[in-house]
Design a protein around this nucleic acid. Structure first.
Lengths: 123, 123
DNA sequence: TTTGTATATATCTATATTACTATATAGTGA
DNA sequence: TCACTATATAGTAATATAGATATATACAAA
């Protein structure tokens, strides 16, 4: 019953703002979600949310190896999550999309929801 | 320059609403993002955003194999994205977290951003 | 219980992605 | 040009996860 009630609420909501996504859209969305599905990349984003940083600074901030930092930054760049700017020998990266923070925040709120959910599961 | 300017904006924003996430949090967030990083699961969510459905209905709606539908629903259930309720022989699934739609919407807006980004890359 | 149907799960192969190491490239300055 | 530093990328082994197939479980009805 609980499910049914929630479900009807959700159904009603989706009828008002309808979600019309093609399969191709979903593939793209999945690809983008996948770029955020790695704690290494989230660490980089967390650091960059504080301030823009060069690769060297990011290596220090995250403790990751240089190659991995560059590779993951490349992935985030492909997704348009970050932007890069060369400064002499250095390359400075910065968050380029304000939705990044929102996305992470939403997921964090979901972590609590999941925790609550698991409590319920056990009970 | 463009990057620098954007970066400073972001930096300022993060200073006001600070993002204080532990590494453990990031692992969890990554796991949850990973659950949305699969077009099969997004297809299931897209169907469920319309209305709650049984597994059989989801098989029809998505064209996926029964085993895969069940497996992916299990993953979404673990993440607390959906809830399940048995109805006789059938099991009906429903979106259980309203943020699911928001997450997808945010990502969709990001798709356009990425498209724009790629245009810029080419130019 | 037996039979039939709906759903869940186990096992397999193929594919993708990670961290690692080593190497290549881009830029600075002599 | 050469040497030096910062960043990017190639190559590899290990790990994870998808879909396919087959099987197990849960429930309904006879």
């Amino acid at each position: 019953m609980a499910v049914r009630n929630q479900a009807q609420k959700v159904g009603a909501r989706s009828r008002s703002k309808r979600v019309n996504l093609t399969d191709a859209h979903l593939e793209e969305v999945a690809r983008l979600f996948g770029m955020l599905a790695e704690s290494s990349r989230l660490k980089l984003l967390r650091a960059l949310l504080d301030r823009p940083m060069t690769v060297s600074e990011l290596i220090q901030a995250t403790g990751m190896r240089q190659g991995n930092v560059s590779k993951h930054l490349g992935t985030l760049l492909l997704g348009g999550f970050v932007a890069r700017e060369r400064e002499g020998n250095f390359v400075r990266y910065a968050i380029s999309d304000p939705t990044v923070a929102s996305l992470c925040m939403l997921m964090c709120s979901r972590i609590e929801a999941e925790a609550r959910h698991r409590m319920r599961q056990l009970a």
